[in-house]
């Protein structure tokens, strides 16, 4: 078991390393010159070369990559050019390990940017997860046990509607009617727990989280319904009924136990992907999370921030995969890790 975990973690690390390599290669293959962006529009050839040297873009890609990886492990100092650091010690910024880079556009380390943005995305993801899990599983079971009835068709129909409307439409719709026109809810603006307490944090999260949860909920309703219907046709369900077990025990103990197991994988991966930011939801609600950070960094060609966020997102997914696989050893007795 422990050997398995260590091995999986080692593979995960190797995967991350490969991810940084690919990310670097991709961005340096693009035709845009980051030094020109950093320098500005009215920038002479000479100034641009200066900027390139100061930011370390004059070095070969593999060397830049090496510096990045080293920064992740032991931390590093910015600007990247050692001569500039020696000449002007007052501009040096230290970036602690694991250093994800330095955004010269924001004049802050990527770590600080992430530290500010991550709580917003995590809050959004956690509240949305709770909403879509409860809603998705409950309505999924309800639809499965009433299969073919008016209730089942209604639920399945609603999931189609939720699927069909794009997130930005639902978000704008909620904003316009709930917050602006009828004013039944405050216009959501992210408030951290330290600032406003749990109540204000929650109240502000309701609308964006629900928007985010809606499309996931639709998917989970359909999946739960399908998994429950499938597991209720298994031979062991017939055995449970033949024992004389009560109908609800057959469903909730024997049926659900098998039906909900595959959901664990989906939940793990969906949640991990969301941790790295819900781009559309955060953009529409102007929530300063990792999604919005990604959008802004992409628009401004803020290369270090993009690389930092991509690698963060990648590590979330890799970690979630490992956790899901390990948790299966506890969920399914047939799985032996080794």
């Amino acid at each position: 078991m422990w050997a398995y975990i260590v091995r999986r973690c080692a593979v995960g690390l190797a995967l991350l390393l490969a991810l940084t390599l690919v990310t670097f290669a991709l961005f340096f293959a693009s035709p845009v010159d980051p030094a020109r962006f950093a320098c500005g529009k009215n920038c002479s050839e000479q100034q641009r070369d200066q900027a390139r040297k100061a930011l370390g873009y004059d070095k070969p890609v593999y060397e830049q990559w090496g510096n990045f990886v080293k920064g992740v492990v032991v931390g590093r100092d910015f600007p990247a050019d050692p001569e500039l650091r020696a000449a002007a010690p007052e501009v040096v910024t230290h970036c602690e390990a694991p250093c994800l880079g330095y955004s010269h556009l924001n004049a802050r380390t990527v770590n600080e940017l992430v530290k500010d943005a991550a709580p917003v995305s995590i809050s959004l993801a956690v509240v949305a997860l709770v909403m879509w899990l409860i809603g998705g599983v409950l309505f999924g079971i309800l639809a499965a046990v009433t299969k073919g009835s008016f209730m089942d068709r209604g639920i399945v129909g609603l999931t189609l509607v939720a699927y069909a409307f794009p997130t930005f439409f639902i978000a704008v719709f909620f904003l316009k009617y709930l917050a602006v026109k009828w004013q039944v809810m405050p216009y959501p603006a992210y408030t951290s727990i330290e600032e406003g307490g749990i109540a204000a944090w929650m109240l502000n999260l309701l609308m964006p989280s629900f928007t985010l949860a809606l499309v996931f909920m639709a998917g989970y309703v359909r999946m739960t319904r399908a998994f429950v219907l499938e597991s209720m046709t298994e031979d062991y369900i017939r055995t449970a009924r033949a024992k004389g077990l009560q109908g609800r025990k057959v469903l909730f103990k024997h049926g659900l136990r098998a039906a909900l197991t595959p959901l664990v994988t989906m939940v793990g991966l969906d949640f991990a992907a969301l941790l790295a930011g819900a781009i559309i939801t955060e953009s529409v609600f102007a929530y300063p999370g990792l999604g919005l950070l990604t959008v802004q960094a992409s628009a401004a060609y803020d290369l270090p921030t993009i690389i930092g966020v991509v690698i963060l997102a990648g590590s979330f997914v890799i970690l979630a995969n490992i956790i899901v696989d390990i948790s299966y050893a506890f969920i399914d007795p047939r799985v032996r890790l080794g």
């Binding site: 298994e234 031979d235 062991y236 017939r238 055995t239 449970a240 033949a242 024997h254 136990r257 098998a258 197991t261 969920i331 399914d332 007795p333 047939r334």
Partner: peptide
């Protein structure tokens, strides 16, 4: 039942 593997629930002892 006929097939005791599928007729027993895999997740319970």
């Amino acid at each position: 039942f006929q097939d005791p593997l599928s007729s027993l629930h895999p997740y319970f002892t």
